[in-house]
Design a binder for these strands. Structure first.
Lengths: 164, 164
DNA sequence: TATTGTTATACTCTATAACTATA
DNA sequence: TATAGTTATAGAGTATAACAATA
């Protein structure tokens, strides 16, 4: 078990990590908000899914996810069609236009990271990704609300790790 | 140099890390916003400083920092007094009331992290903290604006690491 | 003229709560 | 009655730009 001053330092680092996120967001296309990019990235990686699952993967409330998805759908980047298994849901899927945008954004993001992290080794990045995933999982496990749903999200996270 | 799919995964993890930050923020006192907590934490750790340096440490714009500081000063948690070396600046310092609040918040934050990360070893946390700091430094180095100021901020980050 | 801060404006993201439709 | 999703409202954080005061 780590000691208290370490945890305080971790809290400070977490609080300051936004700088990196914003710098990365600055390189997105002007008409694609970070939230939209996240929707496309997850649908692109995991394939079609329902809104509720997307919300779990993004770690945000269903209502917020709904707004992000509406925004992306309005621009024609995803398609929504009825879920044959549940009339209340729709399945979300990246459209051809969305795929094109996603491909371009992924390339750009990777390029920006390659520039900034040019002196990082493969292992450095892998270690950070693993610790990130584990951090999220550790928090997800203890969350008060939606224990069932959270277990699902954590499983996804683990699957993500395994693929690396 | 890491490969592209690794960088894409890192981007996804960064995009989702907000969940952890928000969960941590939920445990702050109701009248202390996350931004206020960050101001107090940095002034508490590094001692009195000017607004511009605080902005560097927080990794946000000076204007935003100014608003956070005004908020904290209104509540009496910090004091602002003239900088003897520069009439345009004021030095910021945690007040007794602010110190009391800070002490309580630090304890609470460490406690929450200890609960969530109970199965993390000392080394796990240290590794994550180090990689976080390095990530921020790698981005800070390349930032277009304020190369001089940024070098300063990076030096602080390194000092932080050494203290662990 | 350059720098330190402050303030006004606007945008993104988020959660809570009320509501609709379907299971 | 419970669940999936939508929408309205409100709050926090951020950046840009215009402005004031001092170096």
């Amino acid at each position: 078990m780590a000691d208290r001053s370490q945890f305080e330092e971790l809290a400070r680092q977490l609080s300051a990590i936004g700088t990196v996120k914003r710098e990365l967001a600055r390189h997105l296309p002007g008409d694609c908000a970070p939230g939209s990019a996240a929707v496309l990235a997850l649908l692109g990686k995991f394939g079609e899914m329902r809104l509720s699952r997307l919300a779990e993967l993004m770690g945000i409330d269903l209502s917020v996810t709904s707004r992000h998805v509406a925004h992306v759908a309005e621009r024609g980047w995803i398609e929504r069609y009825p879920d044959p298994q549940d009339g209340r849901s729709r399945l979300l899927r990246v459209s051809p236009a969305g795929q094109e945008l996603l491909t371009e954004m992924s390339a750009r993001t990777a390029e920006v990271l390659q520039t900034y992290l040019h002196d990082w080794t493969d292992d450095d990045v892998a270690q950070l990704v693993t610790l990130f995933a584990r951090l999220r999982a550790s928090f997800g496990d203890c969350r008060a609300h939606g224990a069932r749903a959270t277990a699902h999200a954590v499983a996804e996270t683990d699957a993500t790790q395994e693929r690396l």
